[in-house]
Design a protein around this nucleic acid. Sequence first.
RNA 1: UCCCGGGUAGCUCAGUGGUAGAGCGGGUGGCUGUUAACCACUUGGUCGGGGGUUCGAGUCCCUCCCCGGGAGCCA
Length: 437
Amino acid sequence: MNTESPAVTAIADLQTHVGQAVTLRGWVYHLRSSGKVRFLVVRDGTGLAQGVLVKGNLPEEDFQQFDRLTLESSLILEGKVKAEPRAPGGYELEVSRLRPVNISQEFPISPKEHGVAFLLDRRHLWLRSPRQQAILRVRDEVCRACRDFFQERGFVLVDTPILTPTSCEGTTSLFETNYLDQGKAYLSQSGQLYLEAAAMALGRVYCFGPTFRAEKSKTRRHLTEFWMVEAEAAFFTLEDVMALAEDLVRHMVARVLLHQEPQLRLLERDLGPLEQVVAGPFPRLSYGEALERLKEQGKEIPWGEDLGGDEETVLSQMFQRPVLVHRYPRSAKAFYMEPDPADPRLALCVDLLAPEGYGEIVGGSQRMDDLETLLKSLAAHNLPREPLEWYLDLRRYGSVPHGGFGLGLERVVGWLCGLHHVRETIPFPRLIDRIYP
RNA sequence: UCCCGGGUAGCUCAGUGGUAGAGCGGGUGGCUGUUAACCACUUGGUCGGGGGUUCGAGUCCCUCCCCGGGAGCCA
């Protein structure tokens, strides 16, 4: 009785099966009925395709199954592929069999407008929408571009711990947990210190993993759990750090433009600014020069103060490409940064600001390599020395100049996709007041 | 933590102290090429919770809760 089904095909591959019978498996994206001709748009994760049901072209029983279908019902379709400019996706299936797998209950998310809170409460369902799929594909591309980039340059992936005994930066932003009989442990807010140890072993290393910050930051650029790529290399100067960060960012943008242009178009991303990023070198400004530029724009910042989001936005909008701002005052930066020999008030550090108002996506520096200088810095920052003895060891046993940077994955993806908020760039965002679903 | 703006049907929202509304969605019927289809009918309510003012409160006042936007801090 059973006739054999044609080969299962992904919607993205339909173009190579025109004129052939195929089987599609997916979910109902849209339904329309016009009497004896019925249309359904199916999605399968690779794209959208339209199915056409004409009474008489398929078993009456299958034709009637159409009336049971609801949005997001899962189903298996068989039919002949036809190129059809009128159809969403450009290809159409003349349906010869229709078998529902599961009739969906009323799906809460429609193609109409929804509020942010409503969608975030249903993030597990929201992921099915074309925009969210496009963003996740861009994220995937950025991750792969990053791994390829470091591998090609001889960097070794070193996974740093997520449970840590101490903090790297302020203790106010730490997630705390109990660690068996050992007392408190904290979720990692940076792999940097461990990466420095690994750089003394392997020369060039990087890590890529989740990072946790319990900051009560409620902005479009903050998550409490985000992914960070960190690189560290022995014998690297600030110049080397800046060049590497610039190359990485350019490489990521180029890869996304090369492989994910359809996603960017779906997201209605203006490609012009991204093409600019790939086209040439990034401008560089010292902190002092940045203050002058800001003053010209009517934003006067007292020397010594860090640049806020507003200032970053103004600066980044002055250039068509990402801008590297280097040599901030040490007072505004972390304890481990090497002082500038030309002006010891300054740190050999750099922030990379994305254009179009997206702000900081990379922060890096040359690290202190001298034991005495580092000890003085710890004292100046009121940091306890004992839990960092292992870190100080790196300065006791063959210390060398070294440096590195961290790049925030979600901020990069948000920028590349042209999004207003990073919460859409990670599958299940963790925000200050939200840990569901 | 602070400063703004919100909370009314499943969703997005309107609602001037005096009968609780629209569009979309859902349901029923119609339509042989639809494109967020269309047409007709229909179904939807603890107006965030509590208290107060008033003849009368979705509307005014107090309070609590929740959500959004921004600031500080950071990737």
